[in-house]
Design a protein around this nucleic acid. Structure first.
Lengths: 206, 206
DNA sequence: CCACAAACAGACAGGCTTGACTGTTTGTTT
DNA sequence: AAACAAACAGTCAAGCCTGTCTGTTTGTGG
């Protein structure tokens, strides 16, 4: 029952946005009477805050699952594809609505901010691991952060004009640039831009 | 009068968010009677759409002014600083509120989407020019787009937790990486990561 | 001075949202 | 079985938002 209400809240956020999400709509969507809803979540804020926490867990789980689904002998591009897909998914949209809504809603912000930081840290750690990046080298940490902020920006753009071709081209080039920058031992000297053809795999499992 | 109302709309978007912006609030903020407001903008949608157009012009003007203020003998970092600042400014916040609000509001989306594309194109062109990038080379265009999506992502993050140190570190590193990637003639062979010390200027005016 | 239209002012009704409130069912303990 | 609490159902009042409506001022052409 609580779970149904929180799920319905997230669905309403995706479908109607933060402003268009009313408690009545949520209870209807969840198939729960208004009385029951008010019993479990006395105020709208209680419900939304609970939904934020729930969404945080869902995002963590989806990210972990997506990470596990990345091919064992993967290239940088595979990792970026996974990240790009996550940051264009409904859970990200719901998080975005909450994020933006929380900006002008102090109690909600108090709930969203720490959880968002948590997801951010987890995502960062996961990305470092998948990329096999060495954060002890100066600049590597910042490049990983830049990568995550990039996919966040791409995800934002995707919410209103989903041009996936554009996104893929950008991520293609980013993968190449990232490879060049993260390359532990620069064996080839120069070509800083995408050679339109192949990229050789860099890593094998274990 | 019309201008006062549109300005007040944008201010309300920044202060109270899209959901918290009511026509009554706008008229109060503008110091305009409700009757006058309804005379100039019969519906809320009319007002918001007009504000979107107005905001587009303001953004264009602010960007142009910021671009003009970039030092004549500038480095990549200066351009990124300018972009980073713009995408953390109130006009960007207002645009973000409209952007997210428009996602679930078809008539608003119809007004926002084309204007946003216009600003995007202008910003892209301006950035290419400031960076002196050669878009005829494959991959360059995508790197510029990635840069803009990156600052958009950074701007989004800045709305709820303004960690400017983090942002500056990321942009420092990205400036360096971008320089390496865009460098027309790779004279030095390798160092792909930030040398913590100096970066030499690359361009002089004219 | 008059006629007319645009600009402005404020009251009002209809609809929606939130949370309080009363009543009913279910389950558990004694 | 009785007592009690938790879960559930639905109604209601207060408040806000939007857009319509009527009335007033300002400006302009004849």
């Amino acid at each position: 029952m609580r779970a149904r209400l929180m799920d319905a809240t997230i669905e309403c956020l995706v479908e109607h946005g933060f402003g268009g999400t009313s408690t009545t709509l949520i209870s209807e969507r969840a198939g729960v009477s208004r009385g029951a809803q008010l019993h479990h979540f006395p105020t709208k804020n209680d419900l939304v805050v609970a939904a934020v926490a729930h969404l945080t867990e869902v995002r963590g789980a989806e990210l972990a699952a997506a990470a596990a689904a990345v091919p064992p002998a993967h290239r940088t591009r595979d990792v970026l594809r996974m990240l790009g897909d996550h940051f264009a998914s409904p859970v990200f949209i719901a998080a975005l609505e909450l994020w933006v809504g929380a900006r002008t809603d102090p109690p909600l912000l108090a709930a969203v901010a720490p959880l968002e930081r948590k997801v951010g840290r987890e995502t960062h750690r996961m990305t470092v691991e998948l990329l096999g990046a060495d954060e002890s080298k100066p600049g590597v940490r910042e490049l990983v952060q830049a990568t995550l902020d990039l996919v966040r920006g791409l995800g934002l753009a995707a919410t209103i004009s989903d041009d996936s071709r554009r996104r893929n081209r950008i991520l293609d080039q980013w993968a190449h640039t990232l490879d060049e920058a993260l390359e532990p031992t620069p064996r080839r000297s120069s070509p800083p831009l995408l050679r339109t053809s192949v990229e050789q795999p860099r890593r094998s499992p274990g």
